[in-house]
């Protein structure tokens, strides 16, 4: 039981979305009442299991968790938001929207409810309204990188790459050490055909995360595009010699990552295991 609580805590910290794991570990905890032994953590586990249960469609478990939270914190905005999410999962989007609106009417600085409203509009199939709501939210909470990231995502759905790139620039200002965000930005730039800047961003990814394969492939894509195009006249452009050198280096690293005996054996072991489990 202790180890299940530890795994749940690790999942809460890492924010990975693994509802099947959470339900499998959390269901016995909630149903046997052992969760109460976790003291203050118990309520976080209830919330975590409730959301995971909504993800996997285990409505009875979700109801049980939300009821427990409701009994402990009557009238709390965070619990009402869970109620709203329950309605959302059930497809009752209008009722969910009313809950969020009521929370925001009482306290217009409730960021959780504001974010839910954005996702509600998206679920309703109103992407431009969702973008508008999120832009309004970010106007006030401009240091929320999650919000910028989500806005970039919404813009990408609409194929608005320039706006998405702007959002990723904001994210990079707030979280400069996260290589995944640099990778996203680089891939948006590549899609926009802004190859020279994309190359720099892909290089940054590899700088932040050694031998990042997706970054290395990005570098190779950019260098081959630039080498095949007519040489740029601008003095700021990377010279042909440098591009060839970068291309060679990326190839060398990719061969080192995939070609070494240990790596090949590890890949083989993983794929064999996967095939055997089919």
């Amino acid at each position: 039981m202790v180890s299940a609580a530890k795994v749940l805590q690790d999942l809460r910290a890492s924010a990975e979305r693994k509802p099947d794991v959470v339900v499998r570990l959390g269901k016995p905890l909630v149903e046997s009442g052992a969760v109460r032994k976790l003291d203050a953590d118990a309520w976080l586990v209830y919330e975590q299991v409730a959301i995971a249960a909504l993800d996997t469609g285990d409505d009875a478990l979700a109801q049980k968790c939300i009821q427990a939270l409701e009994d402990k914190f009557p009238g709390s905005a965070r619990v009402r938001r869970l109620h709203g999410m329950q309605l959302e999962a059930d497809g009752k989007l209008t009722e969910a929207g009313e809950i969020y609106k009521a929370i925001l009417n009482e306290d217009e600085t409730n960021v959780l409810a504001a974010k839910r409203q954005v996702m509600l509009l998206r679920a309703m199939g109103l992407p431009s309204e969702a973008i508008g709501a999120l832009v309004k939210y970010l106007d006030i909470n401009y240091t929320d990188f999650e919000g910028w990231l989500q806005l970039a995502d919404l813009y990408l759905d609409e194929l608005m790459y320039a706006q998405a790139a702007f959002c990723m620039e904001e994210v990079l200002m707030l979280q400069p050490q996260n290589h995944i965000f640099h990778l996203k930005y680089a891939e948006i730039l590549y899609t926009q055909e802004n190859i020279p800047l994309a190359l720099k961003q892909f290089c940054r990814v590899v700088e932040l995360c050694k031998d990042h394969v997706r970054g290395l492939y990005g570098i190779k894509l950019c260098t081959s595009r630039l080498l095949n195009a007519a040489p740029s006249k601008s003095p700021a452009a990377t010279s042909q010699e440098d591009l060839t050198a970068i291309d060679l280096l990326a190839t060398e690293r990719l061969i080192a990552v995939y070609g070494s005996g240990a790596a090949a054996a590890a890949t083989k072991a993983v794929s064999t295991k996967w095939i055997e489990n089919l």
């Binding site: 909504l54 993800d55 999410m85 996702m119 990231l149 996260n178 995944i180």
Partner: peptide, 28 residues
């Protein structure tokens, strides 16, 4: 430290969960 983490954890946005997905059908 960041380089050790997976993309699922670095790109996770828990406050922007959407329930409009296949999970309910798959796990039911």
């Amino acid at each position: 430290e960041m380089a050790k983490q997976s993309i699922e954890s670095l790109d996770a946005r828990p406050s922007f969960y959407s329930f409009n997905h296949r999970g309910r059908a798959v796990f039911r």
